[in-house]
Design a binder for these strands. Structure first.
Lengths: 145, 145
DNA sequence: TCCTAGTTAAGAATTATTCCTATTTCTTTG
DNA sequence: CAAAGAAATAGGAATAATTCTTAACTAGGA
C-alpha cells in the first residue's frame, strides 16, 4: 500500500481524515521505506512538525492508537520504556532483533506459528489476539564494549 | 532453590547482603510459590513494607535490577507500561500468556528455540543475550466484553 | 573494632503517556 | 453552499513509572 491506499482504507473504516493524520501516515510511510526502523511518538512529532508545525504530541499518541486499533500500525514494546510503531505492510508479518546497545532494530522473518497453534489448543478458553517475539543482544558495533 | 540458597548465590557473586535485599527476595519467593504471577516494583514495595516499613521504592528498583543482572530474577515487559519481575527457578525456562483484560499471566512451557538457533546462524555478528515471547489475548472471564 | 566501598532513604527530577477542556474542523444533510 | 453535530485538536495540566542526587548509614573484610 502507498499512503493514498491507507487513506482510502481509513475512510472506509470510518476514520475522519485530518491533515494531522495524513502527515503522521506520511512519516510512518517514509520510515517504512527507509529501512523500517520503528519510531516512537516523540520522533513522529518531530518529523511531522517540520511540515505541520502546530501538531501536538497528544495528537500523535491518539492517532497512533487509532491507527493501531484500525490495524494499519503495529505497536511495539521493547525493553526500553518507550512504545514504538511501524506501518503494517499487508501480507507481511515479522518479529524483531533488538540491539541493547544502540537500539537498532532488525526484522526477523520467522514466527513461532507452531507454538501459537499449540497454545491455541492447550488453552482453548483463551482468545488469542496478538503475540510478540523479540530477540535482544548486541550488534557488531556494540558488542565490543 | 529456597531463599537461603539464593542468598548463598548472591554472596558468592559478591552482592552485599542487606536486610532490604533479603526481604525483597523473600517476597519474590513467596510469589513464585503462590502461582508465579510476576510482580511489579510497586507491589514488591507494598509487600516488603509490611515487614520492613522503611524501605524506599528506589531501593526496590535498584535491588530488582541487581538481581536481574545477577541472573536470579527475570525482568518482563508486557504491553502495559510497568515492568514485572519473577524469580528465576533453575532449570526452568518459560514464556507468557497475558490477558489484556485483567492482566493475568500464565506460563507457557514452549520456547521457539529453533528460531533462535536459526537467527544465531543468519546473524552471526549479533550476540544474542536474551529473548521474549508473549501471547496476548483474553481469558475466559474477560472475553465476554 | 575500625574502615571503606557499597547501599540506603527521601525527595527531586525525568520520561513517557494520558487526561481535560475550550476551540476548531471534517463530513453529512438540508 | 451553509449549518449542525460529532469528532478531533492544541495546550497545558496531570499521572505513572522510573531514575537521579546527596547525605547518612552499614556490611563485611582487615
Amino acid at each position: 500500500m502507498i499512503p493514498g491506499e491507507f487513506i482510502e482504507h481509513l475512510k472506509r473504516v470510518g476514520v475522519r481524515l485530518t491533515p494531522q493524520r495524513q502527515e503522521i501516515l506520511q512519516v510512518l510511510w517514509e520510515r517504512a521505506q527507509a529501512g523500517g526502523q520503528p519510531v516512537n511518538a516523540e520522533e513522529v512529532m518531530k518529523c511531522v512538525r517540520s511540515r505541520y508545525p502546530g501538531i501536538s504530541l497528544d495528537t500523535v499518541y491518539r492517532t497512533l492508537a487509532t491507527f493501531t486499533r484500525k490495524g494499519i500500525v503495529n505497536e511495539l514494546q521493547f525493553k526500553d520504556q518507550s512504545r514504538r510503531y511501524e506501518l503494517v505492510i499487508q501480507g507481511e508479518h515479522h518479529h524483531h532483533l533488538v540491539c541493547l546497545g544502540c537500539g537498532y532494530v532488525r526484522e526477523i522473518a520467522y514466527c513461532p506459528v507452531d507454538i501459537i497453534e499449540r497454545v491455541k489448543e492447550c488453552y482453548s478458553d483463551f482468545k488469542i489476539e496478538d503475540h510478540s517475539f523479540t530477540i535482544y543482544g548486541y550488534c557488531a558495533q556494540c558488542r565490543e564494549d
